[in-house]
Design a protein around this nucleic acid. Structure first.
Lengths: 334, 334
DNA sequence: TTTGGCGGCGCAAACGTTTGCTTTCGATTT
DNA sequence: AAATCGAAAGCAAACGTTTGCGCCGCCAAA
């Protein structure tokens, strides 16, 4: 339990004032070469590490070299990939990233937003839990840079990077229709999230393009978790006139849907076709390989981090809004 | 960009001294009911949030209500589940958890260890990158409580919770042998991690029990990432006398191995059997369903967080070491 | 010799808390 | 009536930094 050393210890050892030590560390102000060397030596000998807490208390804006990333569900691979994206650019720029998982729980989201603010991170990246999220607006009003990813906020002029969910869903459902399906079940995301809504819109537009009407009893909305995929797929498939294909709006729910399909002993794609959102580790070697629309999750994270870093550097720059294209990966499940 | 309010603002508004405000917040000291009400009102009106940075600067030990969790790879579902475990108990006890991902990179691990320390978290949970990790020993010497999960540290008397990797691997390979296999390939973890080593030991002991000799050319060590699973499986399967079954020591590497198997158009389990570590989202509906040993990842996280919380409360309590049992889930891939 | 300028460094305030000590004041005890 | 007590609240120091300002001494210019 060695006592951790502070500026005064270093200063004492190098026989200078603490301000001199501070200035040699931060390369600010004029310090003679000889004293600098003495200070460096003292720091090395004491194993001195600056106390980030104290530093942040003093300089409250833009110097903590900390990025906050708040994600809805760490078990969703999409967000894991996204996190890797922001981490890679953060690390390259000597920023640490603090990750928090709010588990699609609004109270938790608020809690972590508070924590991040209280920790005075330099900026925050997050997918808002829904489109009208007053908590994050409050944060931006307090002056903390925020960039929205994946899901967007209806109010508020913010940096954001999202995936073109409408186009992704459109292409997917077009493909399903092209395979001859006419009764297409939808397992969608939460109706109050922009992702859920946009994918639903793609589903509807694909129907309209093909002059198909969407049957209300074939569309269900889940919560992006595996269990809800299983349940909803079961409901759909147990209908007296069940859909011949399923469009499932995220990876975890697709895994759930496949469980239901397996439990009902249905054959893919002969008895029921399926196409999902997000790639899963085993999707390409599945039997049959799963056709899915792949989201550029890593890229989303990367772009978001770059945007955030730029905003931290120049808070006055105009807001940027990016929309990345997903890719329909046609395999054999439909 | 509203100015964020501090203790003095509240104090001024409630016409009391800042210490009174502080004491009403923390329920410490005697404060009259009437003043308390005034202070509460002022806080509400100003939307006051205590500044955690300042608080931590003042009380440097055990009050930040922050837990650090440093994981090797956020894309590995095992760690995602583990993280959920620690989060759930942390949240229940009003702790926030700061998650960092070091991507199996020693420099990054050290960096985040520094950050955590500098942020003065109350305690840290992590799987050390390898068994002789001086950086984490340094941290415990500085007085920060640490609990090791999954992988352990050879030196240092620490709280730890791990999975019984030896037994898990033993059961798995016993099962493979029971299916009649005699040439069993191993795709192991890093040889300098306790998990990699213990699973290897299980593999060897299962052979010994059955009076089989392990063939050196059938064992390979990967890095727990998908790509290395693919590569090593390919190597193994391309041997002139290839193994008839594979034991793959984590989930991501198993996904990789299955890619290699698919690329070689081999049939599971007829031409090659496979059993892995860790469950994957699609493992149970795979064709064939994958037999794996399931680790109690969530439980590991839960126990670790509970241990850490107890240690924070009572730094003098004796060290606890937990070993959780994995479960062999026999399906149809071998 | 005086003046001005400047490089090098120290002094001390400030950031927002927590907390030991002191002060005030009304009530109870002797 | 004086002494004691205790509850309620204020004062000020401390945590480890950063940073504006000012002081000192040296050298060049006047």
């Amino acid at each position: 339990m060695k006592k951790i050393s502070s500026l005064v210890d270093v200063a004492r050892r190098a026989k200078v004032n603490i301000s001199t030590v501070s200035r040699t560390i931060n390369q600010t102000g004029k310090i003679g070469a000889a004293t600098q060397a003495r200070v460096q030596k003292a720091m090395r000998e004491l194993g001195y590490k600056p106390n980030r807490v104290a530093r942040r208390l003093r300089t409250s804006q833009g110097t903590s070299h900390l990025l906050g990333l708040i994600i809805p569900n760490i078990q969703n691979i999409f967000f894991a990939d996204l996190a890797r994206g922001v981490e890679d650019v953060a690390y390259r720029n000597n920023f640490a990233v603090l990750l928090c998982n709010y588990d699609e729980d609004e109270a938790k989201e608020r809690f972590y937003l508070d924590v991040m603010q209280a920790e005075s991170v330099d900026g925050i990246i997050l997918p808002p839990i829904h489109e009208h999220d007053p908590a994050v607006l409050q944060v931006v009003r307090n002056g903390t840079p925020v960039v929205c990813v994946d899901r967007i906020l209806s109010a508020g002029d913010l940096d954001k990077v999202e995936v073109d969910n409408h186009t992704g869903a459109l292409k997917a459902v077009e493909h399903i229709i092209a395979q001859g399906h006419r009764r297409i079940g939808l397992i969608g995301g939460p109706a109050d999230s922009s992702t859920g809504r946009e994918r639903y819109r793609g589903y509807k537009d694909a129907h309209a393009q093909a002059s198909l009407t969407v049957k209300a009893d074939l569309v269900r909305f889940g919560d992006f978790k595996q269990e809800s995929g299983r349940l909803l797929a079961h409901e759909l498939l147990a209908l007296s006139n069940p859909p011949t294909a399923l469009f499932v709006c995220n990876g975890l729910m697709m895994a759930g849907a496949l469980e239901a399909i397996a439990a009902l002993r249905l054959k893919v794609p002969k008895q029921v076709g399926i196409v999902g959102f997000d790639d899963l580790p085993l999707a390409d070697v599945f039997n049959p390989p799963l056709t899915i629309v792949r989201q550029p999750a890593y890229e989303v994270g990367r772009c978001a981090a770059e945007l955030l870093l730029k905003r931290i550097e120049d808070p006055a720059r105009p807001m940027t809004s990016l929309k990345l294209l997903p890719e329909l990966v046609i395999r054999k499940s439909c």
